[in-house]
Computed example of a mutant assay.
Amino acid sequence: MRNLLIAGLLAGAAFVPAAYAQDAETTAPEAAAESTPESTGAAAEYDVDTVVATVNGTDITLGNVIAMRERLPAQYQNLPDETLMTGLIQQLADQLVLANSLSTDPDQDPVAVKLQLENDRRAALANIVAEQYMSEPVSDEAIQTAYDAQVEAFQPRPEYDASHILVATEEEANAVLEEINGGADFAEVAKEKSTDGSAGQGGSLGWFGQGQMVPEFETAVVGMEKGAVAGPIQTQFGWHLIKLNDTRESAAPSLEETRPQIEQQLRQEAFQGKLETLRGEAEIEIKAGEVPAAAVRDADLLN
C-alpha cells in the first residue's frame, strides 16, 4: 500500500514548481529554520485537528497535510514550507473531489478500497513498532560483545597489491613486456603506455582481495610470486601485464569501522525477537492450502 501511495504522490506531484524543485536542497533548510515556532520563540497556535481547508463541507486538517508530507519522496521533503503547504492542501482537495465523485459513504466504498485501507492500517501500525525497535539505543557493552564475536570468527584471507599495464592488443602487450624484461621500470612504462585509469599511478591498483577482479586477472595474480611480472593476460578490458608488488593476510575491521553495522544488526535482532515472541503468543492458522496459488492474481475478485 505504501508503494501505491508513493506512486500516487509522484504522479500527482505536478504542483512542485520546476525552479523550487531545482533549488530545494539549498533553499529549503533555511526557510524551514526561519519558520519554525521553536526558532522564533512563538507558541504554536495549531494542532493536528486544525482545519486548513474545507471541500463540500468536509474538513482537511493540518494532520492530513503532515501525514501526506511524511510520505512524500525524499526529493520533495526539503521544498520550501509554503510550497509544500499550498501544494499538499491542493492535492488533498483534488483527491477529495475525485473520491467524492465515486463514493461519499465509507460503507459504500468499492471492495478494493476497503481492503487497501485495511492493509494500510496494519502496515502503518506494524511500521511504528518496527521503527521503535530499529531506533532503540544499543549499549556499548552489547556492541563490544558482538564485535568480539566477529573478530573471533574472522577468517583471514589473502590480499594482493598489484600493478598492471593495459593495452589493446596482444602484440602491444608483448612489445611492452620486452621493454620491461630489458630493464625498463614497470611504473614508468605504465605511465607512458597503459590505457587504464591507473596509468597516472604507475599502474598501481592498490590492495584487493579475491573476488574483486575479473577471473582471468585474479587467477594470474594468485599464481604469482612477489615481484614477478606476468602476461600478457587477456580479459574483457584488453591485454594486461601484471606485476605483483606484495601480499598479506586480511585483518579484521576495527570496532569503529563496523560499529554502525553492528548497531543495525543488534536492533534487527531485537526486533526479530519481538516478532517471534508475538508470533508465539498469537493463534495463527494458515489456510492458504485451501485456495489455489493462482488465485493471488485474480484481481477480478476486487470488482
Rank of each mutant, 00 (worst) to 15 (best):
A187M: 00
E249Q: 14
Y20D: 05
D81E: 14
P232V: 00
T36P: 03
I89F: 00
T86W: 02
Q77Y: 01
P156N: 07
E285I: 15
A112R: 11
D109H: 15
A270G: 08
D298W: 07
A230G: 10
F271K: 04
Y76R: 02
Q212H: 09
P37E: 02
P110Q: 10
L278N: 01
S101E: 08
G41Q: 03
F186K: 10
E179G: 08
E131L: 12
P156R: 14
E118T: 12
L4D: 11
V55I: 15
K193I: 02
N303I: 00
S35R: 13
L115P: 05
E25M: 08
K243E: 15
D161H: 04
V296C: 08
R69M: 09
I165C: 03
L102K: 15
P80K: 00
N3L: 12
S194Y: 02
N56P: 05
Q90N: 05
D81P: 09
E249D: 14
T61I: 00
I89S: 01
T83Q: 03
G57I: 10
Q236I: 06
S101I: 00
D59G: 13
G63D: 03
G8N: 10
E152G: 02
N181K: 06
L96H: 06
A7N: 11
K114C: 04
Q265I: 01
S250R: 06
N127F: 07
A42L: 14
L278S: 04
A252W: 04
E178S: 15
P292W: 05
E136H: 07
A44D: 04
E269W: 03
Q144T: 11
L177D: 10
F154T: 11
L98V: 11
P253V: 07
E281H: 07
G273D: 14
A21V: 01
T169K: 09
A149E: 12
V52C: 08
T83W: 00
M224W: 09
V138E: 03
G12K: 04
N119R: 13
F271W: 13
K274L: 13
D161Y: 02
T219A: 14
A294D: 15
A184R: 14
A130C: 01
A13C: 13
I89N: 00
E225V: 04
A13M: 12
E172S: 06
L275S: 08
N78I: 08
R121I: 14
F15I: 05
A220T: 12
N78L: 15
E131R: 14
M1V: 14
V221D: 06
N56W: 06
L117D: 12
I262W: 05
M1K: 14
E276K: 12
L205Y: 12
T258F: 05
A53N: 05
R259G: 10
A220V: 03
V138I: 12
A93K: 11
D94S: 12
K274M: 11
E263W: 00
Q91A: 07
V48K: 10
I89T: 08
G182P: 04
I233S: 15
A294P: 08
A153H: 15
K226Q: 10
T54N: 13
T26I: 13
A252I: 02
S194T: 09
P80N: 04
E136Y: 00
Q236L: 03
Q77M: 10
L266F: 14
D185W: 10
E131F: 02
A293C: 01
D59A: 15
V151H: 12
V151N: 07
G280D: 15
